[in-house]
Design a protein around this nucleic acid. Structure first.
Ligand SMILES: [Mn+2]
Ligand SMILES: [Mn+2]
Ligand SMILES: [Zn+2]
Ligand SMILES: [Zn+2]
Lengths: 156, 156
DNA sequence: TTGTATTTTGATTTCCGTTTTCAATTTCTA
DNA sequence: TAGAAATTGAAAACGGAAATCAAAATACAA
C-alpha cells in the first residue's frame, strides 16, 4: 500500500493539488477497505470514524484515486459505481453472483491474448476492457457438488 | 424478423398480456431500427411517424422485449441503456470506440470456451456474460495504416 | 511568521436517465 | 355488448452522480 500512497501524493503535487487531511484519511481508509464497495457503502464505513467528512468529498476523492491510477472504477450492472484498489502490474476480471452478489476475481492470460488478437483483426487499439461472468456461485447454485453421474434429466 | 414477432406474440399470450396497437408499432420499429440505440434515441426516431406514443410506453415495451428474449439490453458505460435485436442462436461481444462511439461486433468461440473453463474452476454457473473492448477504432487511431517500419519516434 | 491567492470542503441543489403513478382509455372474454 | 382487467401517456418520483457556492484550509512568497 506504500506504493499507492506515494503514487497519490506524487499525483497531487504534479497536478498542483493540495494535500488535505480529508484526502489522507480517505486514502488510508480506501487502502484498508475491502474491494468493490460503492461510494455510498464506503462513505458509510468511513463516517463511523470520521463523521465530519462529507459525501461530496468522498466522491471527489475516489474519482481522484481513479484518475491517478490507484483505484479502478467498476460497474456491475446495478446502477452503482464501485471502486477497488488497483495495482500497477495486476489486472483481473470478475465473476458476479446474481444471487448473493459476491464477487470473485480471476485472471486468464489466454483470454487476454485472444482479446488482443480480436482487436488486431479490426485494427482496433484497445485501451481498456471489461469482462464479467454473471451467474450463480458455488454456494448459490442449486446442487453445488456431486452432480449425478447417471442420466441428468434433460435440462429444459 | 418473423421469428421475433412470433416469439413476442407468444410471450404476450403466455403472460396474458394484451396485444395493443402501440406494442405492434414499437415491435416493428424496433426490428427495423439499427442496433445499440438508447431508449431516448429510439423514442425520438419512433415519434416522427407515431407522435402519439409516449416515452413510458416505449420504455416499458423495450423492457418487455428484453424479458421475452427478442431484445438484448446493453450498457457501454455511458449512463444509457441500449437495446439491440437478439437472435435465439447468436451471441456476440463488442468493440467500443471511445472516440467516435461506433460499435463493432465480434464473436470468438475460443474466448467463450475459456470463459466456461474459468467458471468451472470456480464451480460457478454462468447465466450471462459481458465482454467489451474499449479503445480507438481503425478510423480514429493516430496512424491507421502503414506504421513506419523504421524507428518509430518513441510514443510518449 | 504573516498575507494572500488558490484550492478544498461539505451541505445542498441540480442533473439526468429510469421507473412509477394514476386517471382515462383500450382490450378481451364471456 | 358489458364489465373486468390491462394498458396508455403525461407527469411526478426516484436514485445516484455531479455541480454549486460560501466558508475554511492550504501553500507559498515576502
Ligand atoms: Mn476486482
Ligand atoms: Mn451488438
Ligand atoms: Zn452466490
Ligand atoms: Zn472510432
Amino acid at each position: 500500500m506504500k506504493v499507492q500512497k506515494e503514487k497519490f501524493f506524487n499525483f497531487l503535487s504534479r497536478k498542483r493539488l493540495k494535500n488535505t487531511n480529508q484526502r489522507v484519511v480517505i486514502l488510508e481508509a480506501f487502502l484498508r477497505q475491502k474491494s468493490h464497495l460503492s461510494t455510498e457503502d464506503f462513505y458509510r464505513q468511513l463516517r463511523k470514524k470520521h463523521p465530519g467528512i462529507g459525501y461530496a468529498t468522498v466522491h471527489r476523492t475516489l474519482k481522484l484515486f481513479a484518475e491517478c491510477g490507484i483505484a479502478a472504477e467498476r460497474n456491475f450492472g446495478d446502477g452503482q459505481m464501485r471502486f477497488e484498489v488497483s495495482r500497477e502490474d495486476e489486472h483481473h476480471d470478475h465473476l458476479v453472483c446474481t444471487a448473493c452478489s459476491r464477487i470473485f476475481e480471476f485472471e486468464n492470460q489466454q483470454i487476454e491474448q485472444l482479446q488482443r488478437e480480436v482487436a488486431q483483426t479490426y485494427n482496433f487499439q484497445i485501451s481498456d476492457h471489461r469482462l464479467e461472468l454473471y451467474g450463480l456461485c458455488s454456494d448459490c447454485r442449486p446442487q453445488t457438488t456431486s452432480a449425478p453421474q447417471g442420466a441428468s434429466p434433460a435440462n429444459l
